[in-house]
Nucleic acid binder design. Structure first.
Lengths: 336, 336
DNA sequence: ACTTGGCACTCCTTACACGTGAGTGCCAGC
DNA sequence: GCTGGCACTCACGTGTAAGGAGTGCCAAGT
């Protein structure tokens, strides 16, 4: 009974604190929410919640502020999924539909996500590991110089220039092209890699060089680690907590490796993961939360997408936006 | 005679202010620099410099701070080009030499530049307009679906997928490929565009669609407007002037169009352009300066590269770094 | 067994006063 | 034209005091 009200109090405190950015006191709370009890009652509840570690006071005789544990409870038990309005849905769909290629999909997603959530958006490029090779193209830039283009099922294109020891005529080029495609096209990256590695070891001179380059391109960790970041300007809203929230985050954004670790493993598509403050792997980022979800064609979680921001954020709204964007991006990847 | 000393005083003030971030007074000035005159003399000079608009006081009885005009004079007349040490030069060269493709060159340049200058680095991708078409490749993804790859002399690769009305067999594909290459390869973008436009208007069905897509890809303004940005974390150093310097800049960084306008036209390669505070086109960015230079193969200024940061910055060092990086990037583009 | 009003207490915030010191402008002398 | 001296200005830090928002606790009410 009173347990229920306590949770209502916690929810109210989180909501108020998120919007006002100030510690919230008992009196203001009963006024702004329709709690039919007196401030004194709320005070008792708040004291209890503080004992249990859900709230804390910046100093005696100040209002309460949620702790990480408080936010956690809020997110787990007090959040009602508020679906996006149809207008919003349509806006998302049309904005993403205009994309011309994979890079464009990613960069649009980042912009969209940062605008919807007013936070810093992070979108990981679809991982190579689960995608398949759609085609390998070899173009002679000069007799001894080839451009090798690797086209993947996700729409990503990698290109490399290969210098050959000896010139190659058109017939040999055609043969090379078909050998490579026979080995790789249609295969999952991992399988294509082993097939090409065999070519690189055993094949004749031109195959060797080209296959080796392809193997390198596919196993290149850079490709797995690419992320797009946007909306850093939204941090300006948090100018007050510059040192605790803005500065560390700004620094983390530069380090894409850090960022990827922060985003964590791609949770299964459809589930939104929330990591609050010190739950993350970096102590400097104790004041920032991460809201992510997986996305990919057929809801295969190929990669992760989400936002990072101060712990003091609108979790329900953010989670809804992240989920919605992931859903639409996945749909677009389905079509491609 | 005394005119000369006045300039020395201005230089000293700029240098001190940049490093200490505090208004600089007459006494501190004579101590820190080896001026062989008394503070009173310096005060007279400072008063004169203030009358002429080179200095200003935050308030009476505070030290002096350079105005935009003061920085301008400093940059134009008081800056001795300090060349990079050979160690630095070598570091730059090896760092950039590892790049595998154009994207990599650009992203490495951004990182390098932001680290050298400890400012926000901005690198514009080489413009399409002056580069030539190196090759057009057409790949059948499916009988009615083509991937068109456009390879430019700068190393940039654009790809588009084209859906055809009717399927295409291998012979037709080969013919299409050669037609397109005949029209475009080796031409400057502008000429290639007109040649392809002719094809798009007069050619047969498959040419039409593909040529139209190519024209679109080449004239696509997105490509002209791409920039890479890095080092936003360096703004954290300026946390104090958050509202005047950091916030507006953070917002501008998100708007790549704004950023490009801010960078201005690509000055001829070799000349470093400095735009100080209100000299720029945006009133919100009155507290930020821009240091840029052009770069490109054979010192053709294909694009612009540089840094943006608070007006209170180390101009000589920054200018040297910008120039050095531009030089090495140009050299790398020469080789490619 | 909760809830409530009352009350004393804490402590942040704001305002005001005051001393300190860095820095200035000006002037008379060198 | 440079220099030392001197009075003046103001930001800054500190100390004190009043005001107020908020708390904890207790005794009484339901």
């Amino acid at each position: 009974m009173q347990e229920e009200r306590r949770l209502a109090v916690l929810r109210a405190i989180v909501e108020d604190y998120v919007s006002t950015e100030e510690p919230v006191g008992s009196k203001a709370l009963v006024e702004r929410h329709g709690l039919n009890v007196s401030p004194a009652t709320v005070r008792n509840d708040m004291a209890a919640l503080e004992d249990e570690g859900y709230l804390t006071q910046p100093h005696t005789s100040a209002g309460r502020v949620p702790t990480d544990k408080g936010y956690r409870l809020f997110v787990d038990r007090l959040t009602t999924v508020k679906p996006m309005s149809t207008a919003e849905k349509r806006a998302i769909a049309t904005f993403l539909d205009g994309a011309v290629d994979l890079d464009d999909v990613v960069s649009r997603s980042v912009r969209l996500l940062s605008q919807l959530t007013r936070q810093v958006a992070v979108v990981q490029y679809p991982t190579l590991s689960r995608s398949t090779v759609r085609h390998v193209e070899v173009v002679a830039l000069a007799p001894e110089r080839l451009l090798v283009v690797l086209i993947l099922s996700t729409g990503r294109v990698e290109q490399r220039v290969v210098e050959l020891a000896a010139p190659l005529d058109d017939d040999e080029l055609a043969r090379l092209r078909s050998t490579l495609n026979q080995a790789a096209t249609g295969e999952v990256i991992a399988d294509a890699t082993t097939a090409l590695r065999a070519l690189a070891d055993d094949g004749r001179a031109p195959e060797r060089a080209v296959a080796a380059t392809l193997v390198e391109a596919m196993s290149d960790h850079r490709s797995d680690e690419r992320v797009a970041v946007g909306g850093a300007a939204n941090l300006a809203r948090y100018g007050d907590s510059f040192d605790t929230a803005v500065r560390p985050l700004l620094e983390a954004l530069e380090e894409h490796v850090v960022l990827l670790r922060l985003m964590g493993e791609a949770g299964s598509a459809g589930t939104v993961t929330v990591r609050i403050g010190a739950e993350g792997p970096y102590t400097e980022l104790a004041a920032t939360s991460v809201v992510t979800t997986g996305y990919g064609p057929h809801d295969d979680a190929l990669a992760t997408l989400g936002i990072v921001g101060p712990t003091r954020m609108d979790y329900p709204g953010t989670m809804a936006a992240v989920r919605a964007v992931a859903r639409y991006v996945s749909r677009i990847l389905d079509e491609a």
